[in-house]
Design a protein around this nucleic acid. Structure first.
Lengths: 145, 145
DNA sequence: TTCCTTGCAAAACTTTTGCATTAAA
DNA sequence: TTTAATGCAAAAGTTTTGCAAGGAA
C-alpha cells in the first residue's frame, strides 16, 4: 500500500476516498486532488483560495470540515510548526521537516536522513504514537561564512 | 551561567530581568516569578488566571506583551505543540518534549536521553537554529498490554 | 424518507493593536 | 520632562458551530 502522496487525478482521488469510507463529494474530491497532486504543505486558506480561483464552488466551513476529516482518516497529516495556523501535509509517510524561520517555508526531511541512536522510553502505560521533528533554519549571517 | 529555570523569588527575578535589559515592573516580575518558580509549561491564559487569583492586577495585553518580550530575550521559550494555543516553557536549556495526546500534557525530555547518529545538512546558505522534537504519546490500549 | 453534506453567518478562541492613562527614569 | 509600560476595548486572524437547504442513498 502506498502511503505517500502521489500525483493523482480526481478519479483516483475519488477511489481513495471510498477506500477510506469517505463519500466522494465534488468538494472533497477537489480538495484531495489539490493536496495529493504532489507532496506539499498547504494551509486551509490556501486551499480555499486555490479551489475558488480554479472555479470550484466551496465554503470555508467545508474546507475545514474536509481537512479535519481527511486528517482523522489518515489521508493527510496536520502540522503545528508555528502557532499562527495549521499546515496540512499530503505526505503521510513518516518523515520530518526543515522549517525556514524567516520565510515560514517547510521542507520535507526523509526518514533515512535522521537516525536516533537513543530515545527515551515512554512513561508507564504510555506508548509512542509518533515523533515530530522540526529542524529550524535561519539564513547564515554574512559574518559566519 | 545558569540557563535553566530555577526556583526564584521576586527579588531574584527582578535582578534577572535587569540583566536582560528588561525594566522590572511589578507585572513583569510577577510573571517571571510564576514561570521561573519551576520548569513548567504554561499558557497565557493560565498565567493571567494565576496572577489574578493571587491578587496581582494585570491585563491580558500585558501578559501577552510580557511573554513575547521574555521569549524574545531568551528568558523563556515559546512552544507550538498543538495548534490551539502557545505554551511558554520556563526551561530554556536545550531539551525535548513528550506530549500526551489525550491530556495535552507536556513532559520535558532532557538532552542526554536523545541521541542523533545522523542529521541532514541544512540547505546551502542556511544554518540550524534549533531542533524541536516532540514525542507524541498515547495511552496503551488494553489489548496491547 | 432518511441520512449526510454543504454553505452561510455567527460564534468562539487566541493573539495583537490603538490609544488614553499611569508610572518610571 | 520624556520615555516606557499598563489597561481596556476593539480588532484581527484562525477555526468551529448552528442551522436551513440541498443532494445522495
Amino acid at each position: 500500500m502506498n502511503r505517500t502522496a502521489t500525483a493523482a487525478g480526481p478519479p483516483e482521488c475519488a477511489r481513495r476516498l471510498i477506500q477510506l469510507g469517505i463519500r466522494p463529494t465534488p468538494q472533497r474530491v477537489q480538495i484531495a486532488a489539490l493536496l495529493l497532486s504532489a507532496p506539499q504543505h498547504l494551509s486551509a486558506e490556501q486551499i480555499l483560495a486555490a479551489l475558488r480561483s480554479s472555479g470550484t464552488r466551496v465554503s470555508k466551513a467545508t474546507v475545514y470540515n474536509t481537512l479535519n476529516l481527511f486528517a482523522a482518516r489518515g489521508l493527510i497529516r496536520q502540522l503545528s510548526v508555528d502557532g499562527s495556523r495549521a499546515w496540512f501535509d499530503s505526505n503521510t509517510a513518516v518523515h520530518y521537516h526543515f522549517h525556514d524561520t524567516d520565510s515560514g517555508m517547510l521542507i520535507d526531511v526523509p526518514v533515512p536522513e535522521v537516525e536516533f541512536s537513543r530515545l527515551p522510553s515512554p512513561p508507564p502505560g504510555m506508548e509512542v504514537a509518533g515523533i515530530d521533528l522540526v529542524i529550524r533554519l535561519r539564513r547564515k549571517s554574512d559574518t559566519d561564512r
